[in-house]
Design a protein around this nucleic acid. Structure first.
Length: 279
DNA sequence: AATGCTACCTGGTCGC
DNA sequence: TGCGACCAGGTAGCAT
């Protein structure tokens, strides 16, 4: 579920709430995830103190003072809840409870597509999770020229290229549609057909859409909550995602004639776009 | 090498 | 009220 804005929001939420606290106790009720929680996780991190928080793509990295760091991914349905004191009652799919000197973290993930593992800080970028990670959308090195160069040899539709974490990281299925709408580019366009100007529009739109989402606290559908349990708001700001048949915000066209926002399936994932504005 | 299909897992919704 | 089909924000592994 969570894409870059949600992960950034969750990371900042934890950092603000827990900060540089010491981990007192780790209770793991289910170790089966995309990758399993290592058997010695409790022993390796109990008693350590958190020294920092990072987001890399859709991964949250928590640095510890013993040279290790946690690699945490929320998959499609993961949430991290925060509590000042031990929660009175736990919910279904509360798989991991972490007690710190500043409060509790509870990892809830019904589908268990996420993961929580540790690695040595030095080898973080050698892990299979990060060694092929693409550029961060807000990295200064990302510009029209960079993107054009990386799309030059790709025939895949631009929508699918935006979902490829090895090119630009952090974009998921909702924001891929929203970014292409903002950039006025059809999701069906072959990546290698985009002009430098169009690449510039994609870079600009990516930053604009993601930044807007972050400042709005991350979007929410179904099962996403900010760490403190409250809901985000960005869902109301989506222009095309899940709005099949509706009029897009910027269009002057008659729905009766155009049918409004269209839905199609690319690589098994839904894409939404305005065929009038996006070429 | 690149692409596309499937699987992983649970839960919500929709149509009958 | 029940049941099956289908859908969901991510990623990886496999076949082609």
């Amino acid at each position: 579920m969570p894409e870059l804005p949600e992960v950034e929001t969750v990371k900042n939420g934890i950092a603000g709430f827990i900060g540089q606290a010491q981990i007192l106790k780790v209770e793991i009720r289910n170790r089966q995830f995309r990758d399993n929680i290592p058997d010695d996780m409790e022993n390796r991190i109990t008693g350590t103190t958190i020294t920092g928080y990072r987001r890399i793509g859709k991964y949250i990295i928590i640095d510890l003072d013993n040279g290790l760091c946690l690699i945490w991914h929320l998959g499609m349905s993961g949430r991290i809840k925060t509590f000042k004191n031990r929660p009175e009652q736990t919910e279904k799919h509360d798989h991991v409870l972490i007690e710190t000197t500043a409060g509790w973290l509870v990892y809830n993930d019904p589908r268990r597509f996420g993961l929580l593992v540790y690695t040595s800080g030095e080898k973080l970028f050698e892990t299979k999770y990060l060694h092929n990670m693409g550029i961060d959308p807000f990295d200064n090195k990302l510009d029209a020229g960079w993107l054009a160069e990386h799309l030059r040899l790709k025939k895949t539709p631009i929508k699918e290229a935006l979902l490829n974490q090895n090119i630009i990281n952090g974009i998921g299925n909702i924001y891929a549609s929203e970014i292409l709408y903002a950039a006025r580019i059809s999701p069906l366009r072959a990546s290698d057909s985009l002009s430098l100007k169009e690449c510039a529009r994609i870079v600009e739109s990516t930053r604009k859409v993601l930044h807007k989402a972050i400042t709005n606290g991350g979007s929410t559908l179904r099962d996403y909550h900010k760490p403190d349990g409250s809901l985000g708001y960005f869902q109301y700001l989506h222009c095309v995602y899940n709005k099949t048949g509706q009029k897009c915000p910027d269009c002057k066209c008659e729905i009766a004639k155009t049918g409004g926002i269209k839905k199609l399936v690319q690589s098994g994932r839904s894409t939404f776009y305005c065929a009038t504005l996006q070429k």
